[in-house]
């Protein structure tokens, strides 16, 4: 509670520095909060307007919050920061509090992408979250191309919502970029199966071969085991560290998220 109060104070100071036109939401936070100064004023206005428009159209908050270092506010895990932001600022649209929040902590380049509410989770499937992060957001963040990364976030979000409203949310079945890969895999499997089948048929046409064994000529009771021993020698152990989701940025985390949210954390 104490760290939340401190964080609120810092955010209030930060908010006071933002252009008046940008702070035009129902909540206390803008849709796009840049506490580090990664974006120009014009970029910030454009992104804010875009986020606001999409949020109202699809009745789901689309938000970006960037802080310089989460540890300054007492957080060691960006997942906790994102959860606290969502609950403390009462983020989200409607009764279900539908919200998609991208949180960045720039000091260690941590990120968290979280989705709350049925409407948001229907549009942002786990496959969709992986796709938007791995193909559209993280590569651009890694190149410090922040404006493009956030623009891609909103563009893809618009596409996800449209697809969900049409009853075909973005997933492995509806991802058009998978079609080529699926067809290629199907062709490769078919060629292998065809080759194996043809090889079996072909082998039935070549039936003359030298006999290598004489199993048929061991009479009943002709095999007598006269000695057997299975002796334990030694044991070897190998340990492999299990990659945690927050350290690798490649795993999917659902535990520890408030309100049954889904999403992913990591570093870029």
């Amino acid at each position: 509670m104490k760290k939340t109060v401190i964080f609120l104070l810092i955010l209030v100071v930060g908010l006071s520095l933002l252009p008046l036109g940008v702070v035009a939401t129902n909540s206390e936070l803008p849709y796009v909060y840049d506490g580090v100064g990664l974006l120009s004023e014009l970029q910030l206005i454009r992104l804010e307007n875009r986020a606001k428009s999409l949020s109202e159209t699809y009745q789901c908050d689309l938000r970006i919050i960037i802080v310089s270092d989460m540890r300054e506010y007492g957080y060691r895990d960006i997942l906790d920061l994102a959860n606290d932001l969502y609950t403390s600022y009462n983020l989200g649209y409607g009764l279900e509090k539908n919200c998609v929040l991208l949180t960045l902590s720039m000091n260690n380049r941590d990120y968290d992408f979280a989705v709350w509410g049925t409407r948001a989770e229907n549009a942002f499937t786990l496959y969709g979250i992986d796709n938007i992060l791995d193909k559209h957001i993280l590569p651009k963040l890694a190149d410090d191309d922040y404006y493009s990364a956030f623009g891609a976030f909103f563009n893809r979000a618009e596409e996800y919502f449209d697809m969900a409203l049409n009853g075909r949310p973005f997933d492995t079945r509806t991802d058009r970029s998978n079609v080529g890969r699926k067809i290629l895999v199907s062709i490769v499997i078919s060629i292998i199966v065809s080759f194996l089948l043809c090889s079996v048929w072909r082998s039935k046409m070549k039936t003359a071969s030298i006999a290598k064994t004489a199993h048929n000529y061991i009479p009943a009771g002709g095999f007598m085991l006269t000695g057997q021993m299975d002796q334990f020698l030694y044991r070897t152990t190998t340990r492999t560290r299990i990659q945690s989701n927050t350290s690798s940025g490649s795993g999917r985390a659902t535990s520890g998220r408030s309100g049954g949210s889904s999403g992913r954390s990591g570093r870029f």
Partner: peptide, 11 residues
């Protein structure tokens, strides 16, 4: 790790 030994007579 195990060492396995077998002896047999086969006719």
């Amino acid at each position: 790790h195990y060492r396995i030994t077998r002896s047999a007579n086969v006719s």
